[in-house]
């Protein structure tokens, strides 16, 4: 006799959780069109958070480095992209999809390039001196986050910066009775594409093999003749670049950003990484989608609970699975 838990495991195990959440929400919300709008918003938000969080999870997995400054890359990515978009506002307003996309691509690329460079600097100057020392990592990276926030304040000022969106991503499409913002569909697709690319990198390349092995057992990879620290700087930069990309997408999603963005996202990003389980990209995606869906459903059903909901989600999941939903094998 097959029991239910076997069946669930074979169908995808914990990866079915978002589906279960969506089904429960469907009945609680009761209006299919609202449910569809919220679900797509949740998935889009989840994908953007995935971009922000994926690097953090790998960085911790590979070197046990706790980087509380990770969301500084998110913040800088958002502001760099906002500046590029403002500078190219002529292209953005143009009806030409080509000019629109070009502006968008340039903005995202600028954020990513900035993230890669800042990641390199951050790893060499701030993180490298405190490898293997968690307390100092927490202190120095939190300090770095505050410094980053002040730098943003100095460069872009304290007033909220409005972010123009490209013309072709404005507006919504109507599916049945539900209206779905085009930007959200775009955010979802971009996040999904990055996930697939990361998955291929991790599972189909030699570098990916080394990263996966290093996440499990750093010493053993070194005993086989490889330098984890050289691999680590690459992973750190990749994670920073992706966080900046997530920030750029987030800027366009919120359309209004403030220097507090980094500190706000830090909490969300850590919740996602902890829920998903450290060191695994699948886990991070799962955590991000859960948080995205939860935030949107709860925001609709019980707006007053919206802030607390993700904390509660994290606590429930940790009680059930102390190392997260889908951690890397250790």
């Amino acid at each position: 006799m097959t029991n239910i838990s076997d069946l669930v495991t074979r169908a995808g195990g914990v990866f079915l959780l978002p589906v279960a959440v969506a089904i429960v929400a469907f009945f609680l919300i009761g209006v299919p069109s609202s449910w569809l709008t919220l679900t797509i918003a949740g998935l889009a938000m989840g994908m953007m958070i995935f971009l922000m969080a994926s690097g953090l999870s790998l960085v911790f997995g590979l070197m046990d480095v706790l980087n509380f400054g990770h969301s500084a890359f998110v913040s800088f990515g958002a502001f760099v992209a906002a500046s590029v978009l403002a500078w190219l506002s002529g292209w953005l307003g143009s009806p030409s999809v080509i000019l629109n996309s070009l502006a968008l691509i340039l903005a995202i690329a600028a954020a990513v390039v900035f993230g890669l460079g800042a990641g390199w600097f951050f790893e060499r100057v701030i993180v490298k001196p405190v490898y293997h020392d968690h307390l100092r990592q927490i202190l120095i990276t939190m300090g770095a986050l505050i410094v980053a926030e002040q730098m943003i304040l100095a460069i872009w000022g304290g007033a909220p910066v409005s972010v123009p969106r490209p013309h072709f991503l404005e507006g919504s499409i109507i599916i049945g009775d539900a209206s779905v913002e085009i930007y959200r569909i775009f955010a979802f697709c971009l996040g999904a594409a990055v996930y697939v690319a990361l998955h291929v990198l991790l599972n189909r390349t030699r570098i990916g093999l080394l990263i996966r092995a290093g996440v499990e057992n750093r010493e053993m990879v070194e005993a086989l003749g490889f330098r984890i620290d050289r691999l680590f700087i690459g992973v750190f930069m990749l994670g920073s670049g992706l966080a900046a990309m997530g920030g750029a997408m987030w800027a366009g999603y919120e359309t209004l950003i403030t220097p507090a963005l980094g500190a706000e996202m830090m909490i969300i990003v850590f919740i996602v990484v902890i829920i998903g389980g450290l060191g695994s990209i699948q886990g991070t995606l799962l955590g991000a989608i859960m948080v995205g869906l939860f935030a949107n459903y709860v925001g609709f059903l019980a707006p007053k609970m919206a802030l607390a909901s993700n904390m509660i989600l994290m606590m429930v999941i940790l009680l059930w699975r102390p190392s997260g939903l889908a951690p890397a094998v250790k």
Partner: peptide, 28 residues
């Protein structure tokens, strides 16, 4: 010397806990 350089001189290590990467296949 760094562990990885020692390994590259032609020394292999089979630790007490075997140091197998559980999340990887045997081939990997």
């Amino acid at each position: 010397m760094h562990t990885s350089d020692i390994a590259r001189l032609g020394i292999a290590y089979v630790p007490e806990n075997m140091g197998i990467f559980g999340g990887l296949t045997v081939e990997e």
